[in-house]
Amino acid sequence: MARQRIFGVPFADIHPLYVTKVQRKGRDPQDVDRVITWLTGYDTDGLRRAVDAGLDLETFFAQAPRMNPDASLITGVVCGHRVEEIEDPLLQQIRWMDKLVDEVARGKRMSSILRGGAPTTAPPARGGG
């Protein structure tokens, strides 16, 4: 099977698109990092380093500290494909991330997005108000 082009896309190109999508729907942009940290085990500093290093998606997922074992509970359609039926493990991980961000943008409850669990490393709370 030929290598998917998406594997070479830098995480730094994808992350701001996720944030923009969530903000456009009036949702909290910090939730993007919350769901990605839940999925991959990166903490917020690790996500920032991945962006700064220009890691492509293949490397980003290969270096993920710990994929969440509950990721297999992520189901539904992304880009016209059922995520639970995607055979390529890396492509499935990428689509899981897409699906989680889609759910944030739609306003789904965080407890439901995280499949009943809590994030292992939540982004730090920001002051203000």
Rank of each mutant, 00 (worst) to 15 (best):
100 L>V: 03
34 R>H: 10
62 A>Q: 13
75 T>W: 01
65 P>H: 04
46 G>E: 04
96 W>G: 00
111 S>D: 06
67 M>E: 15
79 C>Y: 13
32 V>E: 01
99 K>Q: 11
76 G>S: 06
121 T>P: 01
106 R>A: 14
14 I>E: 02
118 A>E: 11
111 S>N: 05
63 Q>T: 11
46 G>P: 12
4 Q>G: 01
30 Q>L: 14
119 P>S: 15
90 L>Y: 14
120 T>K: 08
75 T>Q: 06
85 E>Q: 12
127 G>V: 14
127 G>D: 09
30 Q>W: 15
94 I>D: 02
69 P>H: 05
84 E>T: 02
7 F>P: 02
56 D>V: 15
22 V>Y: 00
126 R>C: 08
8 G>A: 15
107 G>K: 03
90 L>W: 14
91 L>Q: 08
29 P>A: 02
32 V>Y: 00
77 V>N: 03
93 Q>N: 15
45 D>I: 15
48 R>N: 09
107 G>T: 04
126 R>I: 14
87 E>A: 12
77 V>D: 08
92 Q>C: 06
32 V>T: 01
83 V>H: 04
107 G>F: 05
70 D>S: 09
15 H>N: 10
106 R>Y: 07
129 G>L: 11
111 S>Y: 00
107 G>M: 10
58 E>T: 06
85 E>R: 09
87 E>I: 12
111 S>A: 07
16 P>R: 07
26 G>C: 05
27 R>W: 13
108 K>F: 00
82 R>D: 11
122 A>G: 09
1 M>S: 08
117 G>Y: 11
87 E>F: 13
7 F>C: 04
27 R>N: 07
84 E>F: 04
128 G>K: 04
103 E>Y: 12
127 G>H: 10
22 V>F: 01
111 S>G: 09
94 I>L: 09
70 D>K: 10
68 N>W: 05
108 K>T: 05
25 K>V: 01
88 D>I: 14
20 T>E: 11
